[in-house]
Write a protein that binds this DNA or RNA. Structure first.
Lengths: 199, 199
DNA sequence: TGCGGATTCAATCAATTGATTGAATCAATT
DNA sequence: AATTGATTCAATCAATTGATTGAATCCGCA
């Protein structure tokens, strides 16, 4: 599919509107007018709102998963993986600020639409094994895998879920927000590592 | 308004459906049938979907804010406030598991419907002052107030935003989830305190 | 030029949904 | 028992919305 084709324009508009408003609040007419095409052109290419959503969300989750897999496959120390996880996902969400809420919101609100063929398993099994080994070797303190992941993911993603509130109630400008993210790239891994490593 | 009155039944059903499905995906018919009343009974009491939503969300945010205010007004050390924040909000969300997503989702998706008269300011000013003083006295390391809050809030709330994923991809049972939360009540404040306090 | 498939669109359909109406029922008071 | 206001409901309305239809337009190619 070539860039800027009608088909591609529709998908881009769909991602924008879906992640701005969520699945239910999105109207196919919104997407069509955002893409600058007729409603039936949208249906011509994607048949239904559901199928269009699935296409978009599959693409999003693919990009999303790739980051994890790349980090896990990298031949670097565990500490470094933590730093890269926070840094890479922060950059990912910075480049696509709406994806954070898209992923979290829609996977809770419309799991049946989002999950069909996503495999978190490969990633999880590998990561969990690595964590367990470090615990058994006495390098890091005992911690359950879900808790470890939650700490890392929550502190990385949450600023993007809360952006509106941060702007409204903490008066953060866009620049402030970016500075805050850069600060977190250092601080968050450091917090996790300081808590985890027994040294 | 008396307990279990029709009016109250509608509001309870509304909270349930709104927080299950989000504003847009909620149909007044859903609420009515959940409450066991006719659609027009719902309109008789609340006039419109918007007004019903506002009633419900105001009540939610009131409870939500009370926790912060109580902690901040308490005459206990700052460390202890961190522990109570994590613990009290965890209990709050445990008792009302859907409220976490309700608060985060709706305040981002429909800020204009949610925020009218919420004052985060009193809380924030007081808390920020307390943090600044500790930094100036050299008790804790320098950290911006938004970053401090983000760390605390994100690690506390996030498990509830992600519950479905945790169940699906980590195979957590309900019991596992509760154990995990109890573990986090200890671990999360400890992480924050270890990182913050210079001792 | 003219054929044929791909693409686009205006018009329309059917289902959904928030809201209203007017009648019926209930409950308290006299 | 009668009156009155509060409550409830079946039926209906108007707007929205996902989807379809059939005609028009575009484009590559003989």
């Amino acid at each position: 599919m070539q860039l800027n084709s009608t088909e591609e324009k529709i998908k881009k508009a769909a991602l924008k509107v879906f992640s701005d408003k969520g699945y239910a609040q999105t109207k196919t007419r919104d997407i069509a007018s955002n893409a600058g095409v007729n409603i039936s052109t949208l249906h011509y290419y994607y048949r239904s709102k559901d199928r269009l959503f699935k296409m978009v969300s599959d693409e999003v989750f693919e990009k999303f998963n790739k980051i994890s897999h790349d980090i896990l496959d990298a031949d670097i120390p565990f500490e470094e993986k933590i730093r890269r996880f926070v840094s890479d996902y922060t950059d990912f969400y910075k480049a696509n600020p709406k994806l954070a809420s898209f992923i979290i919101f829609e996977s809770e609100r419309n799991p049946e639409k989002v999950f069909d063929n996503i495999d978190f398993e490969r990633f999880d099994q590998k990561a969990e094994r690595e964590l367990r080994q470090l615990i058994q070797r006495g390098v890091i303190r005992p911690i359950s895998y879900p808790n470890f992941v939650l700490n890392m993911v929550s502190m990385t993603v949450f600023p993007f879920l809360n952006k509106h509130m941060l702007h409204k109630f903490n008066g953060l400008t866009e620049k402030d927000f970016e500075d805050l993210l850069e600060e977190r790239k250092i601080m968050v891994p450091q917090m996790i590592i300081d808590h985890l490593y027994l040294k």
